[in-house]
Design a binder for these strands. Structure first.
Length: 331
DNA sequence: AACTCCAGCAACCGCTCCCAG
DNA sequence: ACTGGGAGCGGTTGCTGGAGT
């Protein structure tokens, strides 16, 4: 459907936003709340198209955005979620409310993709150089089932969560954003909650539900939002708790989802709603995604390697691990 | 000091989806 | 049922600053 590009009009400014423009946009949104982007340029006099305003707000000025370095914990989540959901950055971002989809996408493209590529290269090299051993491993693998993987590597999953929390708050607009935080917290406007949590509209939630197959009305995001609605407004601005994340992404769970993806509706232990979410993702998504990208190692192992601070000896580490773990049938 | 190369990131583009009329 | 406009998403581009020579 060919839609006339909204930003092609004469007089529409492009390029980096100036602090002045930011302030204008922020003060307008302070007053009217986010949404109705069409009217923003008209009412503010900004020489920007509505799209650009929305993007600037959601990716940069919106309060609650965390900028700067990604923690290993966040990296792990992104890797997991990317494996689970594919390149659906908005969906991934909904699990990391402090990060924007754009941010996550950029981080994936500039950092994680390379790391994974490196990892796979190292892996290929290793497999090629050790084909005899691997054939033995394959036969073992067939018999042992994947529970071995689970037991052997559950310790690897607890990704370095404590270190490297020094997110660098870089830009001047950070200050604008911070100024807004108080307003957003106190604001009675319903839009604020949605904004604080992320740029998810009901239609997006619906859309996600559709995209996730027949997840129905309880799509991943709607569940997540319901879960968070039960919490205080303050809490809704925070990231998902570590406990939830642990339950979500502990190796046992993810590997179970992985293993059972093609056969049955995965039933994970526990009754936490976030686990239900991931179950929905797993059961609907795994069939298409995981199945098609089969034969990849469990991501916790990958993460372990990726997040290893001492990644200098990547191949060596891999060799070392393989020596330790081949009996446990990783590959 | 000047230049080149490259990584990172903000912003844009084009497409799809949703919904109101 | 159809259409057009608004909004959102994912891919891509291009600017900027730092590192290397």
């Amino acid at each position: 459907m060919g839609r006339p590009p909204c930003c092609d009009k004469v007089g529409i400014k492009k390029g980096p936003w100036t602090p002045e423009e930011d302030i204008i946009l922020v003060s307008y949104i302070q007053e009217h709340g986010p949404g109705n982007w069409r009217s923003v340029p008209t009412n503010t006099g900004l020489m920007r198209c509505s799209k650009s305003c929305r993007l600037r707000w959601t990716n940069y000025l919106r309060p609650g955005i965390k900028r700067g370095n990604f923690t290993p914990h966040e990296e792990g989540m992104i890797i997991h979620l990317q494996a689970l959901l594919g390149n659906r950055w908005a969906a991934i971002a909904s699990y990391l409310p402090q990060r924007t989809d754009n941010d996550i996408k950029n981080y994936w493209n500039t950092h994680l993709k390379k790391k994974i590529k490196k990892f796979q290269t190292a892996l290929d090299t290793h497999i090629a150089s050790d084909s005899n051993a691997s054939s033995q491993v394959m036969s073992t693998r067939t018999h042992n089932n994947n529970s071995d993987i689970s037991s052997t590597h559950s310790s690897l999953v607890r990704v370095n969560q404590s270190s490297n929390s020094s997110a660098t708050y870089a830009s001047s607009t950070e200050n604008i954003s911070r100024l807004l935080e108080g307003w957003m917290r106190n604001s009675p406007k319903p839009a604020s909650a949605a904004v604080a949590f992320g740029p998810k509209s009901p239609s997006q939630v619906r859309q996600l539900g559709d995209q996730h197959g027949n997840a129905g009305p309880t799509s991943t995001c709607s569940l997540l939002q319901c879960n968070n609605q039960a919490k205080s407004e303050q809490e809704s601005c925070d990231m998902i708790s570590h406990e939830e994340l642990e339950s979500l992404f502990s190796f046992d769970n993810s590997s179970m989802a992985w293993e059972k993806s093609s056969s049955e509706s995965t039933t994970l232990h526990g009754s936490h709603s976030t686990q239900a979410e991931i179950r929905l993702c797993s059961s609907s998504m795994n069939e298409t995604k995981v199945k098609s990208e089969n034969n990849q190692p469990p991501f916790s192992f990958l993460e372990k390697w990726l997040l290893d601070e001492a990644a200098n000896g990547q191949v060596e580490d891999l060799m070392g691990m393989s020596a330790d773990c081949c009996s446990a049938t990783i590959f």
